[in-house]
C-alpha cells in the first residue's frame, strides 16, 4: 500500500521545518503500478513498478522487495531490489549486495557492494576539461610561484591519449 513516511534527522521537538524533515512516499510490497511516476519527493519502492520514474531532484530507493522495470531519472538512486532498465542520475547510484540490476547507468558517481548481481553498462560523468592557456600569453593574475608540474587532463596520459 502507499504510505507516507517522515524521516527526521534532528530532535523532533525542536523543529519540523523542511530542513530537518524529509517526506518520502513508500510503494508497499502488495502494490503493482504500471505507468509513469513523477514526483517531487523521495520514493521507496517495495512493490512492483513497470513504466518510467521521473524525480529529478530526489532520491529513489528500490527496497529489497522491490521489482522495477523502468526508465529512471532521479538525483540519487539506491538499489537493493530488482531493477531492469536504464538509470540517468545527476548524483550518485548505490548498488547494494542485495541488488539485481540489468541496464545502463549514467551518473556522476557510483558505489557497488561486493555480491551485487550486475549486468550493466556504466558511463560516469567526466570532469570537464579545461582550456589550455595559449603559449606566450601571460596570465592576467601573477602567481607568486611558477607551477612545477605540467597540467595533465584527468584520465589521460602524458601523450594526451
Amino acid at each position: 500500500m502507499l504510505k507516507k513516511s517522515k524521516k527526521t534527522n534532528a530532535e523532533p521537538k525542536v523543529s519540523t521545518s523542511p530542513a530537518t524533515m524529509v517526506d518520502r512516499t513508500i510503494i508497499g510490497d502488495q502494490i503493482f503500478i504500471e505507468g509513469n511516476i513523477r514526483g517531487e519527493e523521495d520514493l521507496l519502492i517495495e512493490g512492483s513498478v513497470k513504466g518510467s520514474i521521473e524525480m529529478k531532484a530526489h532520491h529513489l530507493t528500490i527496497g529489497s522487495k522491490g521489482k522495477v522495470q523502468a526508465e529512471v531519472h532521479a538525483a540519487n538512486v539506491t538499489i537493493s531490489g530488482k531493477l531492469e532498465g536504464n538509470i540517468n542520475a545527476t548524483g550518485r547510484v548505490e548498488i547494494t549486495k542485495a541488488a539485481d540490476f540489468h541496464g545502463e547507468i549514467k551518473s556522476k558517481s557510483i558505489s557497488v557492494e561486493d555480491g551485487a548481481y550486475l549486468k550493466a553498462v556504466i558511463e560516469l560523468e567526466r570532469e570537464p576539461t579545461q582550456k589550455a592557456v595559449p603559449l606566450g600569453k601571460p596570465e592576467t593574475k601573477v602567481s607568486p610561484e611558477p607551477k612545477k608540474e605540467p597540467f595533465i587532463l584527468a584520465g589521460k596520459d602524458s601523450k594526451g591519449n
Binding site: 557510483i110 555480491g115 551485487a116 548481481y117 550486475l118 549486468k119 550493466a120 553498462v121 556504466i122 558511463e123 560516469l124 567526466r126 584527468a154 584520465g155
Partner: peptide
C-alpha cells in the same frame, strides 16, 4: 568507468 567511454559489467562469477 572513469577511464573508458563505456564500461560493461557482466559478473559471470556470481
Amino acid at each position: 568507468a572513469s577511464r573508458v567511454s563505456k564500461h560493461y559489467v557482466c559478473d559471470m562469477f556470481i
